[in-house]
């Protein structure tokens, strides 16, 4: 039923039934016609490739031979592979690290830019910049700063510590690097969404809390935090999904090293697909990555659902 035209469709029934049917069809068909290009594109370039992804994941790619059907063998290898376990661990550490670093920073920045003082607009603009830059570009900037021989941060830290400091020598250091980079890129979006939540909180609530003698921290915990729960939720969901899927940022920084220390699932998929051309195996990792993303989405919605009930 085309609702826009409801007032119109109740016109006197002096037309022939057939004409009316045609008109009704036209009216009902319009939204479908408008949606047709979108649906066609999404089905042919997202849905069908996804189905073929499932098909490829059941094949083993043999050079010069082509694809051989192997059933679930690829998944069997994946599940028993210590490297894939390392990939998943790296992904989870990456995700946890990015959230732990970026969310508090985003909250802090959101509170700062929500005040209506002069100059806040300019500060907000600058705070948002990391997010509009390409991951490859920001990774390049970070590499420049952390180069073992010429990076200003390496030099400054070595001077501060009194001994040579190289961040990327250890697994922990390399993980810290990719987390710092990603948190730096992610916090602006979180800040923006949270700040939108904060500005929609009625000022009277704070006034009332002040009258009750609540301190700044109390105000934050009792008012700001609960009332920005939904924007925080969407921010965390978006950033989590991007982080879990990230390949280019990490690849440009460490290429997954040292060892498999920072080889997150996306980087592994990138390597299998574009460096080794194990199309079948890469497809099974692709399915694992999609599963992981869906899992993240489901978990967040469950948490939100429970929060709603409570």
């Amino acid at each position: 039923m085309a609702s826009v035209s409801k007032p119109l469709s109740e016109q006197p029934a002096r037309e022939q039934p057939a004409t009316r049917l045609m008109k009704g069809l036209r009216r009902n068909a319009l939204p479908y016609i408008l949606l047709l290009p979108l649906v066609v594109i999404l089905i042919s370039f997202l849905a069908i490739p996804f189905i073929s992804l499932i098909y490829y994941s059941l094949q083993r790619t043999e050079l010069g031979v082509g694809n051989v059907f192997v059933g679930l063998a690829n998944f069997n290898i994946l599940l028993h592979e210590s490297r894939f376990a390392a990939n998943l661990t790296a992904t989870l550490v990456y995700l946890a690290g990015v959230l732990v670093l970026s969310v508090p920073m985003a909250y802090f920045a959101a509170v700062l830019i929500s005040s209506n003082r002069r100059g806040v607009g300019g500060i907000r603009t600058i705070f948002l910049i990391p997010w509009v830059l390409a991951p490859v570009v920001t990774a390049l900037l970070f590499r420049t700063m952390l180069d073992p021989q010429s990076g200003p941060i390496t030099i400054a830290m070595s001077w501060l510590l009194g001994h040579p400091f190289y961040l990327t020598l250890s697994e922990e250091g390399s993980r810290l690097l990719i987390v710092l980079h990603s948190a730096w890129r992610s916090f602006p979006l979180e800040m923006l969404l949270i700040a939108a939540g904060i500005t929609s909180i009625p000022q009277e609530l704070y006034e009332a809390a002040k009258v009750d003698g609540a301190g700044l921290w109390q105000q934050f915990r009792r008012i700001t935090l609960p009332l920005t729960r939904i924007p925080l939720f969407s921010a965390v969901l978006l950033i989590s999904v991007y982080t879990v899927q990230d390949a280019e940022g990490v690849y440009a920084l460490t290429q997954g090293g040292p060892g498999y220390g920072t080889e997150v699932t996306g980087v592994r998929l990138f390597k299998e697909a574009f460096l080794y051309f194990n199309i079948g195996f890469a497809s099974s990792i692709g399915i694992a990555l999609i599963t992981l993303s869906v899992l993240v989405i489901v978990i967040y919605f469950r948490i939100l659902g429970q929060g709603e009930k409570a």
């Binding site: 952390l146 180069d147 021989q149 040579p164 020598l169 390399s174 997954g256 090293g257 040292p258």
Partner: peptide, 14 residues
């Protein structure tokens, strides 16, 4: 050897 020889962003040329 230079301690950064196995850094994850080490460079052969350098």
């Amino acid at each position: 050897t230079p301690p950064y020889s196995f850094a994850s962003d080490a460079d052969y040329n350098n």
